[in-house]
Every structure is written in C-alpha cells, then in structure tokens.
Nucleic acid binder design. Structure first.
Lengths: 210, 210
DNA sequence: GTTAGCATGTAAGGAGTTACATGATTTT
DNA sequence: AAAATCATGTAACTCCTTACATGCTAAC
C-alpha cells in the first residue's frame, strides 16, 4: 500500500505548473532546481512524459504564448499541465505519507515545491523528516556504542562524519520549523552571492556582485 | 565499459574478510558499518550471496574456528571468503575507477575499507572525490547565478543548504587529505564518546569475539 | 560545411526494494 | 505454548541508467 511515487513525476508536474516546456528544457530546469540533490537523464524523462501524457496529466501544446516563436516548423514538443495534472500535483503535495520524509530525494522534491504547499502540510513534512532523522541518529549512535571497539579508525571517522551530517540537517530543520511556526519564509540570505529577489516574506534587494 | 560494481558485493567481501559470517549477521554488520550511509534488505543480500557463491568468491563453511559451536544441528549457513574472493576484494579496492568517487555510496564503501587499502590508492580516491564535488559546486553555483531570480525562497534555501553540505564535505576531504599526506590516521576523536582504540596500521584480529 | 549543441526517443538491463513464505530457536 | 526474533529465501516489481539511434539547427 501507499504506492511509492517517483521523484521524477512529481518534479515534472511541479515544473510544468510554472510554465509549459519541452523535454530538453525540462531536464535542465529539473537538474537546476534540484541542485545538488539529484540528476536525471533523458532515458528516464521521456518515458515518464509519455506515461503522464497517457494518463492525461499533461498534454502537447503547439506554440503557445510564452514560448519563443519559431520560423514555422517545430521539432519541439511543448508540454503543458492539464486540469487533471494540476489536481494530481496538489493531491501528491497534500496527501503526504511517510514517503515525503523517509526518502531523501522525496523530501528534497517536496521541499522544492513548498511555495505551492499549504503551511500546515509543510510543517508536517518538516516535522516528519526531523523525527525520521532523529530515529536514525538514535539507531546509529546505539549501534556505534555497541561496536565501536571493533571498528578501525577510518570506519569510525566515516561514522563520525555521517552522524555530524545528520545532526546538521536536524539543526537546519529546527530552524525551518521555528521559521514556519513564526509564519516567516526561510531566511535564504547570502551564503556566497545568493540573494533573494522575490522573497515571499521579506524583500532585501541586493545589487549584482558579479 | 568499466562495469559498475554493486556496493553490496564489495561490502560483503570486506566484511567477510574480517571473519566468516552468516547472512543475517552480515546484514546487521553491514548496516552498522555503513552507518547513516546505506541500508540493505535481505531481498538483496541473499541473492547477492548466491551469486558470489556461484562465482567462487565465497564458500559455505560448517562450524569453523571463530564461529560459535552449535549443539550439532545447524540451520545457519556460514560463509567465508575464498582465495579468489580475497583477490577480488583487493582488485576492487586497488583498481579504482571513477566509480569510487562518482557515486556517494561507492565512495562510502570504499572509505569504510580504507584500513585495508594502500595509502597511495586512498589518496587518489580522496582527491578524486574532492575534485568531483568541486565540479558539482562549480556547476550548481553557475546555474544558480543564472537562474536565482526565478526561484522562490524555499527552492533557494534548498540550494543554499545543498551547497553548504557539499562545501562541508570538501572541507572534510581537505582535512583527510592533509592527514594522509602527513602519514597519519584520521582524527576520529571525541564527538560523543567515540575514542580511538586502535590508531592505525594494525588490522589486528581482535581477541575473542563474544 | 563541419563541429557543437539542441531535441527526441528506444532497448536492455542494473541494483535494489517490498511483500510474501517458511521454519528454527530463544525468551517469557 | 505463545510471542519474539533469528534465519533464509523467492517473485514481482520499481525506478532509473547506459548506450544507442536519429535528425535538426546554430555557430565558426
């Protein structure tokens, strides 16, 4: 039960929600929106599109408003979201199950579309994810205490780094959760030169630091 | 070309190198050694064992020296590494290819068995991994600079966190690499109560296991 | 006019999971 | 003697990748 939904399908629905696109472009946007999380190949994208077309969630769309006007011919196949597709997308986002936090990728994709997700659902996903990670921490820490004498220093170091990574993600979730409860958007400030132009909650226009 | 080797196979070889074990135990050790990295189910382990048996890398082993003596009957099937298996293991560890750093899991498993890996190979893997991550950073940062205006604050936050994670791993690798060059073992100190008992170059076969 | 990149696909298969099925042994 | 957990497996399936095959179009 609780069929495992492919990451790809949800991502495609989410991207087409913004604007119609053809496959090639979709794949690029996909890999850029998901950032370090995940990368997809055409070999998985096109069959997925064919499937979704068959199920009526997307439809072909010849030369629409937003698309660049071509010389007349078109080799491109632009897809747009149908009404059923929009419904499906909302359903996938709202009817969350453990899949949204069990799996790293699933969580990543869900998070990527948080802007289109109800506040309540966002909170449940974040909290579910946090709980899941804390369970992992408990489990790993316990088995580490039991077996650490038998592990060489490299294995230990791997464990240590792994634990630290998960702890870090928990802290991140903590911040996000209190942000959410306060009704604010995530900070999304600075880092390198990443600055929010269209925030959601608070505008802080930064120049263009090359 | 360069057949992609399953993570599982290498891990099994590595674990059986320490001592003979039966499937159930193997799976537990597997998930404990790999820590937060990866978890396996029986449905993948047993078929893998069957395969490896067929290829002659492991063999059944009725009640050997290290194993607990049973009442006479045995339902357990204890596997041990054959000579070919040992050779295969060393080959997999030494004949590294991109697989050792391209894929997160592959890198994790390779790292887990660094204690049995030549210093030179360790260094190459660490550096390969670092380079790979830096390429990812470049790519993501570039596409982020191009498209950051179009991203909502959640997507941005996801990107930011992703970047930070990778940057953190690069710093970790930097430390490991200079450690390696200095000829030392990784620090593996503190954290919770994790303390190094066996500092480095001794794969001593631990006194009496239970 | 040829390389580079855009664009769309398919066939084969890898690596693993879930869910099921079954029995032995230890604990309560 | 019931419940837990140890122990071994199989069948069907999922989701995605690699490698291939093909053509168009923009740049040099």
């Amino acid at each position: 039960m609780s069929k495992r939904i492919g990451v790809l399908e949800l991502a495609v629905l989410g991207l087409l929600h913004e604007s119609p696109m053809h496959g090639y472009e979709l794949r690029k946007r996909l890999n850029s929106v998901l950032g370090t999380f995940r990368a997809f190949s055409y070999g998985s994208l096109y069959p997925c599109l064919r499937d979704m077309l068959g199920r009526g969630w997307i439809a072909e769309d010849g030369a629409v408003d937003g698309a660049p006007a071509l010389t007349g011919k078109r080799a491109k196949i632009v897809y747009r979201l149908t009404a059923e597709g929009k419904e499906r997308f909302q359903q996938l986002l709202t009817e969350i199950g453990p899949s949204a936090w069990e799996d790293d990728d699933q969580f990543g994709v869900h998070f990527a579309f948080f802007a289109r997700t109800e506040a309540e659902v966002r909170l449940r996903i974040l909290e579910g994810r946090r709980r899941r990670l804390e369970e992992r921490l408990d489990y790993v820490r316990a088995s580490l205490t039991r077996t650490r004498e038998r592990l060489d220093s490299y294995t230990l170091e791997l464990q240590r780094h792994g634990l630290e990574s998960v702890e870090r993600e928990v802290r991140w979730l903590n911040e996000l959760i209190s942000s959410e409860r306060a009704g604010a958007a995530p900070r999304a400030g600075d880092s390198s030169q990443v600055s929010p132009t269209e925030p959601f909650g608070d505008p802080s226009p930064a120049g263009s630091p090359s």
